[in-house]
Design a protein around this nucleic acid. Sequence first.
DNA 1: GGAATTCCTTGACATGGATCAAGTAATCAA
DNA 2: TTGATTACTTGATCCATGTCAAGGAATTCC
Lengths: 224, 224
Amino acid sequence: MIEKLKAIPLFSGLSEDHLEKIAFVATTLNFDKGGMIFHEGDKGNGFYMVEKGTVKVFKLSFEGKEQILHIYGPGHTFGEVPVFEGKNFPASAMAIEKSVILFLPREKFVSLITSTPGLGMNLLADLSRRLREFTIQIENLSLKEVPARLSAYILTLSKEQKNLKKVTLPISKAQLSNLIGTTPETVSRVLKKMTDSSLIEVQTKTIVIKDMEGLQDLSESGSL
Amino acid sequence: MIEKLKAIPLFSGLSEDHLEKIAFVATTLNFDKGGMIFHEGDKGNGFYMVEKGTVKVFKLSFEGKEQILHIYGPGHTFGEVPVFEGKNFPASAMAIEKSVILFLPREKFVSLITSTPGLGMNLLADLSRRLREFTIQIENLSLKEVPARLSAYILTLSKEQKNLKKVTLPISKAQLSNLIGTTPETVSRVLKKMTDSSLIEVQTKTIVIKDMEGLQDLSESGSL
DNA sequence: GGAATTCCTTGACATGGATCAAGTAATCAA
DNA sequence: TTGATTACTTGATCCATGTCAAGGAATTCC
């Protein structure tokens, strides 16, 4: 367990001693594909870490439309907001494939923060990074059109995966459309246009970037 | 100065001694209406507090369109993200009226956090609250239409101002349209429709809520 | 207090993208 | 492997909201 915790950025710089305390209060949860980890409005009495698998954090509209806020893979933590703010979860979380999740109960963790200076700073950095990401997401949703959002997403993938020219979609196109705030139909049509303009080549879950600069332009301003 | 700091939620629960240390490193800045406090991309070597006036934090698109992320009045802090994350400002900040702003330099503040347990927790709570607000803003932009966003905004104002039935717009309608992600023309038209449906009455900067329940419905689901 | 500026409203029109529907491809399960 | 289920594509249509333009109200500034 301690080895697992060491790999998590949030806990970097902590002593074995502290990690041991954390390991002691953590529990392991298993979820099948589609399993709900928590629902918007639930009382949050702890937070979570992905050990294996993939998780989406999302909101549903009144009519059932979904907006994905984050997709998290191994090593990422989520569900912190109610831990520090006291209220309930502002969004829901679901495993989008068979996943193993660690759970850290709130109270034990809060007392750990005050006694572990580095942990507090790590958390502040982590929440700040998330605020920055939301800032970008709001910019994308409000100031950019779908082709710009989609190419920005492909470029993000290309940076995440070392594989600079050939990227693999980690989620279905339906999920992708909910992440960038559009519909599967529109994703399909825009990918086709991008292919027609020789920016990319698509084969099922693989996208080959043919014109990196063109994609970059499209992600910043342009339309197709 | 210490009296000013006491009024700020972020510093609640801190001893006079700690407040004195903070007051010692804080400086006062004056801005006219339209004065830029910082630009997106600037290196952030500290954060800010509104003492008097109003500030908007916003992003500009390539084409010059604006999306407002926050409007802050007296007592609110802003610009923390780079303090804890190290990089630059993810957005810009401008005084939208003559304002007095306190500036807290980064380095002195960071060392203060490690030596002041309560301050770290206050900051975590503050950033968490902001994450929750962004969550709602993303939901609004992506899952709701303009009439729902506008009525949600009016309801928020009504909660903020004790004045339950009669609210005063704290910003121009042009700014309001940039806050809810639309245009002045659309705001104008939607307010008119809401007036025609007897939900509200508008007179310049004042809105009287005639049908609270109807507004609530509209903010959650409906269209006009 | 009146001119000048800024802000707001209204109308006509254009359009990005949603929705509905039907077919095709990919994946899963037995 | 094959049938069944789920995911994706393509076309036709519709609608909310953006854009452009012009007139009207409110504020600001000498």
